[in-house]
């Protein structure tokens, strides 16, 4: 990039490392470099000095679309508890007790209503 006074400015690259073929690429940090090929080399020396990996992404920061920090985008206005899975956590244990006939269906229903 060329700035107003004619100096070449380094671009910022976000670095993503994939540790194994079964993993997602995980963001590990960012760096500044004058070109994508140098960004890739610098990412290798800066972020893979100790850890091993199978793949590396570098993404010029200007290609990342982002939300603003203060906006209603993430607002949680109403009760959303019904979307959560909290009611299911006990299922395994209750089902087992029901099968062992130490619990009736009515008791299970009342247990769920309590939680």
């Amino acid at each position: 990039m060329m700035s107003a006074d004619g100096k070449v400015e380094y671009g910022v690259y976000e670095v993503f490392v994939q540790k194994s073929h079964a993993d997602h690429h995980v963001h590990v940090g960012s760096l500044m470099a004058p070109s994508p090929d140098l960004a890739m080399q610098l990412a290798r020396e800066n972020f893979l000095r100790r850890d091993s990996a199978v793949n590396l992404w570098i993404v010029p920061r200007e290609y990342i679309y982002t939300t603003p920090y203060s906006s209603d985008f993430f607002a949680r206005e109403m009760d959303r508890k019904y979307r959560e899975v909290g009611g299911y956590t006990e299922n395994g244990r209750l089902w087992r007790l029901f099968k062992e006939k130490t619990l009736t269906m009515e008791e299970i229903v009342s247990h769920i209503e309590e939680t």
Binding site: Y10, M32, Q41, L42, E45, N46, R49
Partner: peptide, 14 residues
């Protein structure tokens, strides 16, 4: 001259 080069040189050194 920059921190990236700094760490890279150290990594090469090792």
């Amino acid at each position: 001259p920059d921190i990236e080069g700094d760490v890279a040189f150290s990594s090469v050194a090792q």
